[in-house]
Simulated scan of single mutants.
Amino acid sequence: MGFIYLEIINFVKSEAEVEDELDKVFFMLKNMSTLRTLPRIMNSAVFQRFFQLASYAKLTKEERTMYDIRSKT
């Protein structure tokens, strides 16, 4: 058994250079803090859900409360 270490800072591909699912994961992890919308290359349900969860996590406590109330109706 071995270990693989990932240094996200060393992932330098642009959105246009992303080739496979692993690249998509690395791209998403590296750029999540700056993404305003989900890139079109990440149109699968997994990435959509990941983006939704990350967007929710960025909300303030008050914004989360308002979001939760709106979601229940």
Rank of each mutant, 00 (worst) to 15 (best):
M1P: 14
M1G: 15
M1C: 10
M1I: 06
M1Y: 04
G2V: 01
G2A: 12
G2R: 12
F3L: 10
F3S: 08
F3W: 08
I4E: 14
Y5Q: 14
L6V: 12
L6N: 02
L6S: 05
E7Y: 13
E7W: 08
E7I: 04
E7G: 03
I8T: 12
I8H: 00
I8D: 03
N10A: 11
F11C: 04
V12H: 14
V12D: 14
K13P: 11
K13E: 01
S14W: 09
S14V: 03
S14D: 12
E15G: 10
E15F: 12
E15D: 13
V18M: 01
V18E: 01
E19V: 05
E19R: 10
E19A: 15
E19C: 10
D20M: 03
D20P: 01
D20C: 08
E21G: 08
L22T: 02
L22Y: 11
L22H: 03
D23S: 06
K24W: 10
K24H: 08
V25Y: 05
V25K: 04
F26I: 04
M28G: 00
M28C: 04
M28F: 15
M28E: 01
L29M: 13
L29H: 01
L29K: 03
K30P: 04
K30C: 05
N31Y: 02
M32F: 06
S33W: 01
S33M: 07
S33N: 15
T34L: 03
T34H: 09
T34F: 05
L35G: 06
L35P: 01
L35D: 06
R36I: 11
T37M: 13
T37F: 13
L38R: 05
L38C: 08
P39F: 01
R40H: 10
R40F: 02
I41Q: 00
I41A: 02
M42N: 07
M42Y: 05
M42A: 09
N43R: 10
N43H: 14
S44K: 07
S44G: 11
S44V: 01
S44Q: 09
A45D: 10
A45P: 00
F47P: 00
Q48L: 02
R49Y: 14
F50H: 01
F50I: 05
F51W: 06
F51Y: 06
F51C: 00
Q52C: 10
Q52A: 14
Q52L: 12
Q52M: 12
Q52R: 10
L53N: 13
L53P: 00
L53G: 08
L53A: 07
L53K: 09
A54I: 00
A54M: 07
S55T: 13
S55Q: 13
Y56P: 03
A57K: 11
A57H: 11
K58W: 04
K58N: 09
K58Y: 01
T60V: 04
T60D: 07
K61F: 13
K61L: 11
K61P: 04
E62Q: 07
E63H: 02
E63T: 00
E63Q: 14
R64H: 08
T65E: 15
T65F: 14
T65L: 09
M66I: 04
M66R: 08
M66N: 07
M66C: 05
M66H: 06
M66T: 02
M66F: 09
Y67P: 00
Y67F: 15
Y67R: 11
D68N: 15
D68H: 05
I69Y: 12
I69G: 06
I69E: 15
I69C: 09
S71C: 12
S71V: 05
T73Q: 13
